Amino acid sequence: MKVLVTGCAGFIGFHTAQRLLKRGDDVVGIDNVNDYYDTSLKEARLKELDTTAAQSEGRYEFVRGDLAEQTVVDDCFKAHKFDRVIHLAAQAGVRYSLENPHSYVRSNIVAFTNIIEACRYAATPHLTYASTSSVYGANTKMPFSEHDGANHPLQFYAATKKANEMMAHSYSHLFGLPTTGLRFFTVYGPWGRPDMALFKFTQKILAGEPIPVFNHGNHTRDFTYVDDIVEGVLRASDDIAAHNPDWSSGDPDPASSNAPFRLFNIGNNNPVKLSAYIEAIESSLGIKAQKELLPLQPGDAPDTFADSTELKKAVGYKAKTSVEIGVANFVSWYKSFYNGR
Rank of each mutant, 00 (worst) to 15 (best):
172 S>R: 07
60 Y>N: 01
296 L>W: 11
202 T>L: 06
261 F>P: 03
6 T>A: 05
85 V>M: 10
137 G>D: 12
224 T>K: 05
270 N>Y: 11
287 I>D: 03
192 G>I: 07
76 C>F: 07
136 Y>A: 00
224 T>G: 10
236 A>P: 04
7 G>Q: 02
213 V>S: 11
153 P>L: 11
34 N>Y: 15
289 A>M: 07
152 H>C: 02
219 H>I: 07
103 S>Y: 14
186 T>V: 08
274 L>P: 00
189 G>L: 11
114 N>I: 07
146 E>I: 05
31 D>E: 06
308 S>G: 09
227 D>M: 07
223 F>V: 11
20 L>A: 00
207 A>S: 14
209 E>V: 08
209 E>C: 02
9 A>S: 09
89 A>F: 12
4 L>G: 02
44 A>R: 01
323 V>G: 01
253 D>Q: 12
93 G>R: 05
188 Y>F: 11
88 L>G: 02
96 Y>T: 07
269 N>R: 14
200 K>T: 06
167 M>E: 13
237 S>M: 13
4 L>K: 03
289 A>F: 03
190 P>S: 13
139 N>I: 14
171 Y>W: 13
21 L>K: 10
6 T>N: 04
286 G>R: 14
222 D>A: 12
276 A>W: 15
33 V>H: 02
196 M>T: 12
216 H>K: 14
28 V>S: 03
206 L>S: 15
118 A>W: 04
122 A>V: 07
22 K>G: 03
126 H>K: 07
28 V>W: 05
184 F>P: 05
27 V>Y: 14
184 F>N: 06
340 G>I: 13
328 A>F: 07
334 Y>K: 06
185 F>G: 00
84 R>V: 09
329 N>R: 12
129 Y>D: 06
211 I>Q: 12
77 F>L: 02
274 L>V: 00
135 V>I: 08
47 K>M: 08
247 W>K: 08
20 L>V: 01
108 N>T: 15
32 N>E: 03
27 V>C: 08
239 D>I: 00
59 R>S: 12
31 D>M: 10
63 V>C: 01
296 L>N: 06
340 G>T: 14
179 T>K: 12
65 G>K: 08
119 C>F: 13
24 G>E: 04
246 D>W: 13
122 A>Y: 07
262 R>C: 14
211 I>M: 06
327 V>N: 09
326 G>L: 10
321 T>R: 10
218 N>P: 13
166 M>H: 15
61 E>Y: 11
